[in-house]
Every structure is written in C-alpha cells, then in structure tokens.
Design a protein around this nucleic acid. Structure first.
Lengths: 194, 194, 194, 194
DNA sequence: TATGAATGAGAATTCATTCAT
DNA sequence: TATGAATGAATTCTCATTCAT
C-alpha cells in the first residue's frame, strides 16, 4: 500500500469512488463494510478519513454537486442565439443524464439523512452554482433561467421514476420552442404581451 | 378500536395512516414497531395485513399514487380556455404541494426498495393515470400534456430540495404563459411553425 | 421456550444471573453477546428487557445494593450487648465477603459508567439502607454506626486488592475491642472521657 | 518539546501525565490515541516507550503506588505521642484525598486489567511499602498499624462512592480516639485486657 | 384473529496495535 | 527514533420477522 502524501487528495479519490458506487446502490444499501471492501481499504481507514457515514454522505454530495460546469459554458460563444444556448444545456443534460439522475437520488438521501443545517448550506450553494450557470449560459434574468433549470430537473426526475420512458429529445424540443418564443416575445414587446 | 367489519376498508385505513407517518420520516426511519404503535395495533396484527414491510410500502405507494384526481377535472368545464385549464392544474399542485412532495420522496424510496418488477407495474400505472388526467384536463395531445406535467414535477422537486425557496406562482406564471402561447401558435399555424 | 408471564419477575431473574456473572468478569469484560449466551437468551431479548448496557448495570446495581439485610437483624435480640451485636455484623461480612467484594467492584464500575444523576440517586439510597441497618443493629447514633460500617468496608476493600491477605478475624477483633470500649466509655463518662 | 536526554526520566514524565489523565477518565476511557495527543507525542512514540496499554497501566500503577511517603514521616519526631502521630496520618490522607481516591479507582482497574501475576507482585510491594510507613510512623506492631491503615482506606472509599458525603474529620476523630485509647490500654495492661 | 416476546443477522463505529517511511 | 496512516476484530445496538399462546 503506497503511503499517501496528500490527505485531501486521497479523500477526494475515495469520495469519487463512493459516488460511483452510490449510483448503483444508494446511501442505505451501501454499508461501510461493503464500501471499504469496494474501495480496497479497511473500515478503519474509511473512518480515518470520514468521521461518520453521514459525514461521508455530506462530503460526497458537496463534491458531487460542485461538478465543474465550465464544459457547458465553453461550448457557448458570445454571439450565439438563445436557441443555441439552450440546446447546449439540453444536450449536456441528455449526455449526462445518468449523472443527473444520481444527483436526484442523492439529493433525496441527502434531504433525509443529513443535518438540516448542513443540508441547507450545501443545497443553497449548489442552487446558486447551477443557477449562475444557467444565467450566464443563457444570458437571461435569473427567474427565466430558473424556468429552464426546473424543466430539465423535472425531465430527469420523470425519466428516472416513470419507467415507460418518455423520449428525451421530443419533450425537450417542445420546451425549447416555447421557451425561446416566449423570451423573444417578451424582449420584443417590452413585457409579456404577445 | 371500533370493530372493523370490512377487511379491505381496514387495510386502507392502515395504509392511509402509514402514508402520513411516512411523509415525516421516510421508509427506513419508520420501523414496523413504531408503525404498529402509531396505528394502535401489535406488530403481529400488522403482519396479518401485510406480509412484509416492502409489501406495505408497495401497497401504500399504490394507494397513494391513485389519489382521486376528479377534484381537478371537476373544476373544468367543457368550454374553458386552455389558460384556465392549466391554471386549475397549477392551483391544484400549489394547494397540495406537501402531498406532491411526499409523493416525490416516496417515489424515490419506492424506486430504491421495491422489487423492480413491482416498481415497473405500479409506476407505469401511476404514470398513465396522471398522464390521462392531464390529457383530459387540458384537452391536449399526450406529449404536450406531459410537458406541463413534467414542469410541475420539476417545480415540486426543486422546491423540496433547494431550500432558498423560489416563489411558486411567479415561476408557474412564466411557464403558463409560454405553454399557452406555444399551444395556441401550434394550433393556429398547423404544426409548430411560429 | 416457556412464555414468560411476569415481565418484572423475569427481569429480576436476568439481573440476578448477571450479578453472578459480573463477579467473575466485570462490567467491561462481559459483552452483551457473552451475557446473552450465558443467560441462554438472544441479544435481542436482552435489549427487550434492558434498553442499554448502562441501564442494565444501573438496574443490576440497584437490585444488588438492596439485598435484604434482615438476616443480620434477625440474629440480634433486644437485650444483646454491643459486643455481641457487632460480632453479628463482623460474622455476616466475613461469611459474605465475596458478595461484598463484588459490591465494591461493582460500585466502582457504577461510579465510572453510570450517569452521575443515576449514580447519586442509587448510591444515596444504598447508603441510607446500609446506614440504617447498622444503626438499628448496633443501637447506636448514626455517626458511631458509620465508623463500624466504614471499617468493615475498608477491610473488604483491603482484602480484595492487597493479595497477601490479612487475616480477617484478627484485624476485626482489634477493631471490635477498641470500638466497644470506646462506646462504653463514652456512654459511661458522658462524652469521651476515659 | 525539550529534548529529553534521559530515557527513564522521560518515561516517568509520561507516566505522571497519564496518572493525571487517568484520574479523570479511567483506564478504558482513555484511548492510546487520546493519551498520545494529550502527551504531545504520536502513538508510535507511545509504543516506543510502552509495549502495550496494559503495560502502561502496570508501570503507571507501579509508579503511582510508590509515591514518596517521607513527607509523612518527616512531620513526626521521635518523642511524639501516638495521638499526634496518628493525627499526622489523618491530616495527610485528608489533604491528599483526591490522590488516594484516584489510587482506589486505579487499584480496581489494575485488579481487572493487569495480569494476575503482575498484580500480585506490584500490590504486595505497595502493601509492604504503605504498611511500613504506618509501622514506622505510628511506632506500632504491624497488625495494629494495619487497623489504622484499613480504616483510612475505608474512609477514602466511602467518601468516593457514597455521595452524601460524610464529614471526614468527625469520623476520623472517633476512630483516633478509640484507636489511641485501645493501644494505650493494651500497652498498660500487658495484652488486651481492659 | 390478535398479541408481543423472542430471535439473530447485520449495522455503524471504536481502538489497540503495526509498520513503511 | 519518531510518525501517523492503516488495520480488522470486536463492540453495542437495531429491527424485520416469527410463532406460541
């Protein structure tokens, strides 16, 4: 076993692996023993890095929810149309759907099993982070950006939970059309008159 | 305890109470003993009605997801506009938000802890039931009705999980506007040309 | 396995057995698993009767420290001399030395591992109980009775802990002599003049 | 941390600190990690000086039980009366009551957790050491000195364990009176006739 | 039918000890 | 010598489920 020099580096390594494992089983179906075995360490080592299972969940969610979103923004140019910008988001969610479904599952576990204080702090931060990404990426006021954000969340949730899966692109397409028209109309007409 | 003659009636009574209890704690935080105590019966009696905890979850979710939606449809007249029809749905979700949040939480537990066969069967049915309600209520083709359904799910989920709560009505309003405009435009123009 | 009718009766039965076991091993060297095995029940059953190991210790000490002392008092007649009365106590302690040593060991565990509130309550009661027995048995004022009580405690403790065991009777004899003389002198001379 | 040249000196320093820590927590409530942290060394270093926790307990008790008693003897002159000599002992125990209570607690832990061989050796030596101190200090035959020793042990134990604390001096006073009278009478009358 | 005492596998967590650096 | 990450057996306690009454 190699001596680990960077304590934090190694902790992140464990968290990453845990996230992957979690996507198959869920917080309560992964025991600390299983987890340790899967990660190739002893339970003692796990507890050396994380004081409790709850803490592990919290740190893991914290890390997972801060996933770099620069990949989205990088695909957007300053003079891109709204339609294109939204398409980039839709594509990103579709291409990473499994990841976002895991985040949904995880967020429910996090809701149930973390301290409400910790939950509030982490979720508020995550909310801002994603919110900002939508605002920046779509170049819209926060409220409108949030509408797109929420629809995509709803789509991910729906496809996770209702198994007779709806086609992602078709539904997204409807939303994209209505969203872009709406924004265009708003900006032309002043407010939200037609 | 009044003598319950109707076995099924009594079972539903237990399931209803379990749903209430569950909404506070979650599947794994309600033990069979607690549940029995709360319902005023012995664990033995509980097992007399439900062969296992998993089964209880399944029956309970089945019942909960079939909640009568006639209340929504009853508020809609044949000649109501789409805008009004959608407003009825939005109002219904807003007024029963806690219930729908519980359904979200429950659906995740159900996803995690039921047999996938059972999950598939029950969720498919629930999906159809809600889908039909939207189709009937909005008088739209399934795909479009589903877009509204999904947005409202997303809104419920978002407000459950992100604590710096977004105002329900404001967001819903944006969606309602864009949705109605979009549908109107579609029906006027033939397909989805602007 | 016979159905136990009297819950409390059975609890006492378990406590009694636990005390015997404890005398060999000590609070921390008897695991709940071992204890259950020794008592012929499952760990679950143990926890059915006692909410925690600490609670088990507390209930057990409570029971052990209330051991009936009527056996001592029964051997004393109203017109017995002080010397005789003290002899009865000395004999009783000598004949039950193992039990009293266990109480000493147990009281230290109790000191260490119980809640201080519970400790205070139980020990105060035990103190009064033993104190009263000495007062009644010796027919002396509390303070003097306590001197005898304390000496006998010291003797039990000393013989428990220092293995080159001092002869019980010889040491007790010295104390008995000095104690009886002292009391006699006090009562004759008014105070403590010779 | 100053460089300690003398290995043994350093070991004693660690043992001393351990005794202090122990007096608050008890053998089993002080983990090796805590202990190391408190002493400002690593667990590795601790194990460099002491092969095991049990060994640490043994060495520590060995050291603690050999506490220099010259302080007592120094306060006694050759021509002091027995009453005065005993008073010196009583005062010494009262003034160091906390230390003696710790020794009582420690002796029970030592009884429970050391090898019986080691226990026997160390306790026998401690017994002799304290015994001698009483014999020298009181200038009495061993058996009588032991009676005083035992009473004082009993007093320390009683006040440790029974919280409605008895007044030290009052009880000691009775014992001192009876002890001195008894010894005087014995020496006057030849044996132990009145 | 109804009860609740009994079960025991399995969970999270601790901690004395080791050993590569 | 000194370090502290790593170990893993052992601990307390939980809880779905069974079954004699």
């Amino acid at each position: 076993m190699p001596k680990i020099i960077d304590h934090d580096e190694y902790r992140k390594h464990l968290l990453q692996k845990y996230f992957e494992l979690f996507s198959h089983k869920g917080y309560l179906d992964v025991t600390m023993r299983q987890l340790a075995a899967e990660l190739g360490v002893s339970t003692g080592t796990l507890y050396h890095y994380f004081p409790s299972k709850k803490d592990l969940l919290e740190q893991m969610f914290h890390m997972a929810s801060r996933r770099d979103s620069s990949a989205v923004l990088d695909q957007i140019q300053d003079d891109d149309s709204l339609a294109h910008r939204l398409q980039v988001f839709v594509d990103y969610v579709r291409d990473n759907e499994k990841y976002f479904q895991d985040i949904v599952l995880l967020s429910i576990d996090f809701y149930r099993f973390s301290d409400s204080q910790e939950f509030f702090t982490v979720m508020t931060e995550a909310d801002r982070y994603y919110g900002n990404t939508f605002v920046e990426g779509l170049q819209l006021e926060p409220e409108l950006a949030l509408v797109a954000n929420i629809f995509l969340n709803g789509l991910v949730y729906h496809r996770l939970v209702f198994p007779e899966t709806v086609p992602f692109d078709e539904l997204a397409h409807h939303f994209q059309e209505m969203f872009v028209s709406y924004v265009k109309a708003r900006h032309e007409g002043g407010d939200n008159s037609p």
